[in-house]
Simulated scan of single mutants.
Amino acid sequence: MNTAYRVWDGEQMHYWDDLNLNLFIKGEEWTLYKDSAGLCPDIVTSSQDEKSVFLKGTDQFQTHGRLKRIYAGDIVQQEETELGSPYGPGKFIGEVKMIEGQWCIVNEKKEEVRLLFSQTATNQLIGDVYQNPELLEGVE
């Protein structure tokens, strides 16, 4: 079971394995708590906060450099390594999204979607849409 998640609170990213963080989910609503010295945990953010976003982790990791999990909302650069691939040579950059039950890389400007998982391509994590939205501005 994939339990990796992260939460963007409008200012910073909080990860599932951050010390003293707990996530409570009930139906469609969620709350991120931080354990405190007192009896009641402190609320970091929740689904009620319009600037906060809950992002699921994929089961994929970048294939360049240090092992990093890829999450929804990440910006990934995918490069095909197989000669004769229908995608051709070159780099494809887009946002990671779940589409019909599959993790995909979406480039809205090119109106193109590719599967995140590929046996013949490499993925490099280059940022995310919350902290680095400019990475998608000039993407063709």
Rank of each mutant, 00 (worst) to 15 (best):
Q119I: 04
L115K: 11
G88N: 11
G10D: 08
S46Q: 09
A121S: 15
Y130V: 05
E95N: 01
Q12A: 15
P133G: 04
V129K: 06
G127F: 07
H14I: 12
R66T: 14
L19M: 13
E112H: 01
P41D: 11
T120Y: 14
V106R: 03
G127L: 09
A121H: 02
R66M: 11
P86T: 05
N132D: 15
V139C: 06
L32S: 01
G84M: 04
Q131D: 08
I43R: 12
T45F: 08
T122S: 11
R6D: 03
L23G: 01
E79A: 10
G138S: 04
P41F: 05
L39W: 09
E134L: 07
Q119C: 06
E80G: 02
P133D: 01
Q102T: 13
Q131I: 02
L136Q: 02
L21P: 02
V53G: 00
K91E: 08
E80Y: 02
V106W: 02
W8Y: 13
Q102S: 13
V106C: 09
R66H: 11
G73M: 08
Y130A: 01
W103E: 02
Q77W: 00
L67A: 05
Q62N: 12
Y33K: 04
L83C: 11
V139G: 04
R66D: 15
E112M: 11
A4C: 13
Y130W: 14
Q12M: 15
I105R: 04
W16I: 01
D74I: 04
V113P: 00
E95S: 10
D18W: 02
V129C: 12
L115P: 01
I25E: 13
G38A: 12
P86H: 10
K97H: 09
G10L: 14
S36M: 09
I93F: 03
L32R: 03
A4S: 15
Q77D: 04
I43G: 01
P41M: 09
L136A: 00
K110S: 03
S85W: 07
Y33L: 09
Q60L: 12
D59C: 05
L67S: 14
G73R: 09
D74Y: 07
I105C: 03
F24Y: 10
V129D: 00
Q77V: 05
G38S: 15
L83I: 08
G65F: 12
P86G: 08
E11C: 03
S46N: 07
D17F: 15
T45M: 12
K109F: 06
E137S: 02
T63I: 04
M13I: 14
D74M: 08
S47P: 02
L32W: 11
F92Q: 02
L23R: 00
S47I: 11
T63E: 13
M98W: 00
Y5N: 00
L116F: 06
I70P: 01
G38R: 12
K68V: 12
P86A: 10
S118L: 08
K97V: 09
E137C: 01
G90C: 06
K109M: 06
G38L: 11
C104G: 03
E100K: 11
